[in-house]
Computed example of a mutant assay.
Amino acid sequence: MAQPTVQIEGLDRLREQLQALAPEIEAAAKRTVKESAEAVQAQARQNVRVDTGNLRNELSIDYQDEGLTAVVGWKNRHDWYASIHEHGTSRIPAQPALGPALEEERAKFEERLRQEIRRALR
């Protein structure tokens, strides 16, 4: 009795097409990371406690992994007091700005990424 066989045609062409999409999907991911990082920065700047304006003005974005990772925060060692405002002390009540902005954006990131990838695949 002969064994049934299945032959798939066009697999090489499919592989080539998928490889061609990789740069477009990566670009979509980078756009999403940038858009989300900027949203976190804007929201945190809006909510940070302001005295001199330094914390608001010094909140920065550092892109890593060729734009696939973004770190939003205060990089200057003189901005150590951002942590005090974020978490509070026994004398200073917490007024978190960065944490809530991150959490708000976390809920939006997946949908934002999905939309960017759909746009890239059109």
Rank of each mutant, 00 (worst) to 15 (best):
M1V: 14
A2P: 02
Q3N: 03
P4Y: 06
V6F: 13
Q7D: 00
I8D: 13
G10Q: 00
G10F: 08
L11F: 05
D12W: 00
R13P: 00
R13K: 11
L14P: 10
R15V: 12
E16W: 09
E16G: 12
Q17K: 13
Q17I: 03
Q17W: 08
L18M: 14
Q19P: 05
Q19T: 10
A20Q: 12
A20K: 14
P23G: 08
E24Q: 14
I25H: 03
E26D: 15
E26V: 15
A27E: 10
A27C: 01
A29C: 07
K30F: 09
K30A: 12
K30W: 08
R31M: 03
T32N: 05
T32S: 08
T32P: 02
K34Q: 15
E35Q: 14
E35V: 09
E38R: 13
V40K: 03
Q41N: 14
Q41V: 14
Q41H: 15
A42N: 06
A42Q: 08
Q43N: 03
Q43I: 12
Q43M: 13
A44P: 04
A44K: 04
R45K: 15
Q46L: 14
Q46G: 11
N47Q: 12
V48F: 01
R49D: 07
R49C: 01
V50A: 04
D51E: 10
T52F: 02
G53C: 05
N54K: 08
L55D: 05
L55H: 02
N57T: 11
E58P: 00
L59I: 10
L59K: 07
S60A: 10
S60P: 00
D62P: 03
Y63L: 10
Q64N: 00
D65M: 13
D65S: 15
D65N: 15
E66C: 11
E66K: 15
G67V: 05
L68E: 03
T69Y: 03
A70H: 08
A70R: 01
V71I: 00
V72F: 09
V72Q: 04
G73Y: 03
W74L: 07
W74I: 09
K75T: 01
N76Y: 14
R77Y: 06
H78I: 01
H78M: 05
Y81S: 04
A82S: 04
I84S: 02
H85N: 09
E86L: 08
H87K: 07
G88Q: 03
I92G: 06
I92F: 05
A94M: 09
Q95I: 10
Q95G: 05
Q95W: 06
Q95K: 03
P96L: 04
P96C: 07
A97F: 07
L98S: 05
L98R: 02
A101C: 08
L102R: 07
L102N: 09
L102H: 09
E103M: 06
E104L: 11
A107C: 07
A107R: 15
A107Q: 14
F109R: 02
F109M: 02
E110L: 11
E111N: 07
L113A: 15
R114K: 12
Q115I: 09
Q115A: 10
E116D: 14
R118K: 13
R119S: 07
R119V: 05
L121D: 01
R122S: 08
